[in-house]
Design a protein around this nucleic acid. Structure first.
Length: 238
DNA sequence: AACCAGGACGTGA
DNA sequence: TCACGTCATGGT
């Protein structure tokens, strides 16, 4: 038994519920969350509430790859102005228009192609929950993006591992830096499955846990040397 | 002026 | 399998 569950409770005590995945401003969200943007909905787990919000999460998951969320919000707002937050609307855009809209999110040549192919993919799903392997077969969807889509757009119990997660557990001495994505994921999922056998509740825990790790990492793991001032290294470090 | 941001992909060994 | 270069804008 490792310290995965205690770390979750520590982070929750520090920061409280985060309310991921953020969506563009709409009723029911809380734009007042400290240090973040609009579209958070802390303490609520009924998102996405429709296919439109589901697709917005899928778009954001690709746009945020190695990109700050502030930049992603600009891109999403541009797409919203173009009525392109639906598969039909996005696919109808001229290529140059699409690239210009998502340009603030970086890698716009690559991501434009990814988003267009995702429109067709999402339409063919027709509301079905995709398998993880199916997502991984799509261009532009790697392990983290697949898990983010499954966890936040489809409510599936898939733990999301990102660069922040790696930095934190590395600083805590739980792994060394070269451990594979799937191994880090399993490190979290094994104890969480045991502690939270109810899958629906575990989804909420996974959603909060990843968001809490990001919130914590933004404070203590964004600049080298990573972990400077982190209160958890003393408390939980190996 | 570097470094970082809620990574993924193509390549070569 | 895996380390490495590439993709790109925007903030610190």
């Amino acid at each position: 038994m490792n310290q995965v569950v205690p770390l979750y409770h520590q982070l929750m005590a520090l920061y409280g519920p985060q309310g991921w995945w953020p969506l563009l401003g709409h009723d029911g969200c809380n734009p007042t969350k400290t240090g973040s943007h609009t579209g958070y909905h802390p303490g609520r787990y009924d998102f996405p509430r429709n296919r439109h919000e589901q697709f917005e999460i899928i778009l954001g998951a690709v746009l945020t790859q190695n990109t700050a969320w502030t930049s992603v919000e600009r891109a999403l707002n541009n797409l919203s102005d173009l009525h392109a937050l639906t598969p039909e609307g996005l696919a109808a855009l001229e290529e140059a228009t699409l690239k210009a809209a998502i340009r603030p999110a970086g890698y716009y040549n690559q991501k434009a192609g990814y988003l267009l192919s995702l429109c067709k993919f999402f339409q063919e799903l027709d509301g079905a929950v995709p398998h993880r392997r199916t997502l991984l077969a799509q261009r532009g969807i790697g392990p983290e993006t697949a898990d983010a889509m499954l966890l936040y757009a489809y409510g599936q119990p898939e733990f999301v591992v990102d660069a922040y997660t790696r930095r934190i557990v590395t600083a805590l001495g739980w792994i060394d830096a070269q451990v594979s994505y799937d191994a880090v994921k399993a490190l979290f999922e094994a104890p969480l499955e045991a502690a939270f056998p109810n899958a629906a509740f575990r989804v909420q825990v996974y959603q909060e846990y990843h968001a809490l790790l990001v919130e914590h990492a933004k404070r203590f793991y964004s600049r080298k040397p990573y972990g400077t001032g982190c209160p958890l290294v003393e408390a939980l470090g190996g």
